[in-house]
């Protein structure tokens, strides 16, 4: 694999991570917390109706986790393709 192909592969990997994580981002907020919230409200999480919970705090908690996962994935990817700092 020459240098250019390697660099392209790194960037495509990054784009793939972003695509997957942002799909989850969209799903938990706009779909679970809004578009499908009334349906999800038939299920419960303790005293929370499920759709309401996603809208009220579930999506925020998952947002934090998504960034944590992305940071880990990218730190590993940077090393694997030898583009990490220092």
């Amino acid at each position: 694999m020459d240098e250019n192909q390697k660099m392209d592969a790194y960037w495509r990997k990054n784009l793939a991570y972003i695509a997957v994580l942002l799909s989850i981002w969209f799903a938990v907020s706009c779909v679970f917390g809004l578009l499908a919230a009334d349906t999800l409200d038939h299920f419960r999480l303790g005293g929370f109706k499920l759709g309401f919970w996603f809208a009220n705090q579930g999506s925020e908690i998952i947002f934090v986790l998504l960034i944590v996962v992305y940071v880990q994935l990218m730190n590993r990817l940077d090393r694997k393709y030898d583009v990490h700092e220092d």
Binding site: C30, G33, A55, S59, F63, L66
Partner: peptide, 9 residues
């Protein structure tokens, strides 16, 4: 809540 946190992702 979602709008003002989602931007950080």
């Amino acid at each position: 809540l979602m709008g003002w946190t989602g931007g950080y992702v």
